[in-house]
Amino acid sequence: MVKLPVLKPIDGSAGRTADWRTVKPKFIQDKCTKCLSCWLFCPDIAISMSENVNDGFPVFDDDYCKGCSICAEVCPRDAIEMVPDVGE
């Protein structure tokens, strides 16, 4: 078979990208109105929101969140705070 530069889609094509971050989101559920802003703007689909998961509150992906802080910036209720992530 001819060898070609062809790939299939996968998660983690850049590895475990959470290793890049120095800060990570801390979620404060009491303040959250499930407005979806954090989900909408997350560049890395590291926030998922679904009515039947986690009571509809955001779920943060600890393997692929790069710690960019966009979610904390766009949250209208300050329900996300960025805290230091020094790794394991």
Binding site: P9, I10, D11, G12, S13, A14, G15, R16, T17, W20, R21, C35, L36, W39, L40, F41, P43, D44, I45, A46, M49, S50, D61, D63, Y64, K66, G67, C68, S69, I70
Partner: peptide, 28 residues
Amino acid sequence: RLKELNQIEKEETIKKGNFACAGCGLNI
């Protein structure tokens, strides 16, 4: 509506953990 969009984008056009810089608007 955002709720609709959230339903529509259940399966995403990008994958998690690609090489984009943290905070890159291109992925958005």
